[in-house]
Nucleic acid binder design. Structure first.
Lengths: 200, 200
DNA sequence: CCAGAACTGGAGTCCCCCGTCCGCTTATGA
DNA sequence: TCATAAGCGGACGGGGGACTCCAGTTCTGG
């Protein structure tokens, strides 16, 4: 690839990251191009579909999710690992509107994106098992409850990111207290919520 | 008003109710008109703005919210009243996507809609106070947490309404357990979440 | 240095939605 | 019955976003 093309590619990625974070995933392509200081054609040549742009932009954030699961598994206290994993992913989600949408959306053609998400899900299931065996996490917590948490957390919006983050933290704190073993109440059965929700 | 005009008006209202419930608040006006079997002009003549249509469609549901608060206050067990109020409003919200959006959205010109919502908020604050005084609801529950719950619950989506309802019920059950007095943990401070979030 | 391939940006096309205008139709009540 | 006002629907202009085409520009290897 020519050097100037590479430069433009990076500029587009930066612009898209910013735009997605602030305005969500359906920001106009033209707006991204303008912000990047390139023409629309350049954007489309590099990323033929919106989807390809999205997967490229959020690839590293997704990797962050994976390492976050590893951190949770490495924590000597399984319950604390579980809590910090949820806290971190919810914080990521609420700070970056685009990441939240990308994470919760199914991309029919982005195989590796979906694969990474699946891997994150499996890792999280391990975190859950470990936390349950240690006695910190209530036994009727279902791995599908992760989707529940993420969807609920994704619903949090506010005018400023700071307020949204504070609200999210409070929600997560409530939920984590409900998830702890010392919680006696019974629950309705888990619903088969899919983490990724088809576009449309 | 002429009899046939009245009939068309009712048809439009029905069509809009259905459309909003399934596809959310930003369904094209033309789609509503088509579903109602009328021309676009008829729709616009009866409801000059989308907002006027929305407020008309959801007026009775909003009234349902108000009576729901009254029910909660009438319950001899304050804690149970609090729980059932939250359960009912969350169920309404998750079954009807449009209602959720309408409830969470500020309409600059719909004074009575906003007024009704404010009244519901005040009533709910009374429910909260009563439940706290009875010792069922933890003291650090903040009335603004209602917005938190509704936003979180609004985030729940699934392919079928039944699944969404099941998921919502489970979320609400978790949260109610966290709200109960027997819950010992500390919380981050409440965030100044506004219930109504401006359009745009 | 320069030929040519790689690259570029903006103009152009297509499509969808909004909201209005206008000529035709239909209910109404005298 | 019929004059008339109320009501009707489809066509139309405007605006915005997705995606493409092409003539001009810029990098790069020999």
């Amino acid at each position: 690839m020519r050097a100037d093309a590479q430069l433009n590619r990076d500029r587009i990625l930066d612009a898209a990251r910013d735009a997605f974070a602030v305005r969500g995933l359906d920001v106009p392509m033209a707006a991204i191009a303008r912000r990047a200081g390139v023409g629309v054609a350049t954007l489309y040549r590099r990323f033929p579909t919106r989807e390809s742009l999205i997967t490229e932009v959020f690839a590293d954030q997704l990797a962050g999710c994976l390492s976050l699961v590893d951190d949770a598994l490495a924590d000597p206290d399984p319950w604390r690992g579980f809590c910090s994993a949820i806290e971190k992913v919810c914080a990521m989600q609420v700070i970056d509107r685009g990441f939240s949408a990308a994470f919760l959306t199914a991309f029919p053609d982005a195989i590796d994106f979906d694969k990474a998400r699946t891997r994150a899900e499996e890792g999280f299931a391990a975190v859950v098992r470990r936390a349950q065996e240690s006695g910190g996490l209530r036994a009727d917590f279902d791995p599908a409850d992760l989707a529940l948490i993420l969807q609920a957390n994704a619903g949090i919006t506010a005018d400023s990111p700071a307020v949204a983050l504070a609200a999210s933290r409070r929600l997560v704190a409530y939920l984590l207290q409900a998830f702890h073993t010392n919680q006696a109440g019974s629950l309705p059965p888990p619903a088969p919520l899919a983490l990724q929700h088809a576009i449309g």
